[in-house]
Computed example of a mutant assay.
Amino acid sequence: MGKTNLGQRLAHPRQLWQPSHALVAIPLVLIAAITLADIRTPESVQLGPLLVVAPAITTAFGGYRLTGLIGALAVGTQVVTAELHGGLATTNHISQIIALTILSVFAMIVCFVRDRRTAELAQVRSVSEAAQRALLHPLPDRLGSLHIASSYLAAEKEACIGGDLYAVARTGDRTRVVVGDVRGKGLDAVGEAATLLGSFQEAAHHHATLPALAEALDRSVCRYLTGFPKADGEAQEHFITALLLEIPDHSPVSRVVHCGHPPPFLIRHDHVTPVTSPSPAPPLGMYGLRPATYDVHNFSFQAGDTLLLYTDGVVEARDSSRAFYPLEERVAQWTKNSPKTLVQRLEKDLLAHTGGALGDDAAILVIQRTPVPHTRLHVSPLTHGADLHDQPTD
């Protein structure tokens, strides 16, 4: 077994080589140069203290073991130099060796603490990514006649999850979509997002209409929010803006219910149009503000059309001059892009706009409708974004 492992390593020498290995030459060259210079100078000139630069530089690319090794080499070199310059008995040489040893040990401790924190951060990020995959299930590239792409950008650099959410569910011959944004940040927002996503995945299969689905989700969020303390009305400040979308497979008429969420954009023939609702409902979890019924807005979503859904972290992102991100203007430049390319362009452009630092979580979901095989959709004569009162609604 040992011979086999050795043979595999020798067969793949590139795997043994890492870029940081070349950097080890820097402290080694410094030690050699300083030592030679110190030997050639008179005894009155002491260059030994400069050896501390070797372990100090090693901390930038090496671990605590390598730093300790370089530090020990520097101390050993200092001892040799001291022997050549008057011997080890001199007070000056002894103090230099002690100081160099202490500083080398200190550098090694700094590396050890840094490596430990890096390992802990990597573990936390691993858990965070696993939690995100459990909370926000990766969406399929294809779902029926829909081509889907998505992106999630967390405001916290060390985090992968937050209060924004999206999910899709297949119910018979239609696809239902939810996009939401929890007010607030932190673990509370994650808990509320998990509650809504879990409720949607279950309720989407048990309610025939979007209004009934919206009512079920609102009840679920309200039940969850009752667990929050009500001092100074704190619980009343928690809510979730949401947008519910229903896309039938064999009809160009799609339906949407707005619950305080920014309207999506419909991309058709190089034109970008917001799909607004004349009577949007309050956000989910607003207790007594729940409407008697949730109004459904019908709009034409034909083969070749693209829908862009997003959270307010996108449109409220600011640049250095405090200007908001012009989402509609940017999208108008990329109307011919595929969903995946459009998401990638928006993600890159949004980060460039904000200088890489988002003030809030941002989620983007792009859905493009493709022709259904062996099925001819009934194309509505109405223009996109108009109410289709002559079509059946929920």
Rank of each mutant, 00 (worst) to 15 (best):
Gly2Asn: 14
Gly7Val: 11
Gln8His: 10
Pro13Ala: 11
Leu16Phe: 03
His21Ala: 13
Ala25His: 00
Ile26Lys: 06
Leu28Glu: 07
Leu30Phe: 12
Thr35Ser: 15
Asp38Gly: 03
Thr41Tyr: 09
Pro42Ile: 13
Ser44Trp: 07
Pro55Gln: 12
Ile57Glu: 01
Thr58Val: 13
Gly63Ser: 04
Ile70Tyr: 02
Val75Met: 09
Gly87Cys: 01
Thr91Phe: 11
Val105Cys: 10
Arg114Glu: 15
Thr118Asp: 14
Ala122His: 05
Arg125Val: 13
Ser126Gln: 13
Val127Trp: 02
Val127His: 02
Ala131Met: 11
Ala131Ser: 12
Arg133Gln: 14
His137Thr: 14
Pro140Ser: 09
Asp141Gln: 14
Arg142Gly: 11
Gly144Asn: 08
Ser150Phe: 01
Tyr152Val: 10
Lys157Val: 10
Ala159Cys: 07
Ile161Cys: 10
Val168Asp: 05
Gly172Phe: 01
Arg176Val: 01
Val178Pro: 02
Val182Gln: 01
Gly186Phe: 01
Gly186Val: 00
Leu196Asn: 04
Ser199Tyr: 01
His207Thr: 07
His207Asp: 10
Ala216Val: 11
Asp218His: 08
Val221Leu: 10
His238Glu: 09
Ile240His: 00
Ala242Gly: 06
Leu244His: 01
Leu245Ile: 03
Leu245Thr: 00
Glu246Thr: 07
Ser254Lys: 00
Val257Gly: 04
Phe265Asp: 13
Leu266Ala: 07
His271Glu: 15
Thr273Leu: 12
Val275Leu: 09
Ser279Asp: 15
Pro280Trp: 00
Leu284Gly: 08
Leu284Arg: 08
Gly285Gln: 03
Pro291Tyr: 04
Tyr294Met: 05
Tyr294His: 06
Val296Tyr: 04
His297Met: 13
Phe301Ser: 00
Leu309His: 00
Tyr310Cys: 08
Glu316Lys: 01
Glu316Tyr: 01
Arg318Lys: 13
Asp319Asn: 15
Tyr325Lys: 00
Arg330Gln: 08
Pro339Thr: 04
Thr341His: 12
Thr341Gly: 12
Leu342Asn: 06
Leu342Gly: 08
Asp361Ala: 10
Pro373Asn: 03
Arg376Gly: 08
His378Lys: 09
Gly385Glu: 12
Gly385Asn: 12
Gly385Val: 10
Leu388Trp: 04
Gln391Pro: 07
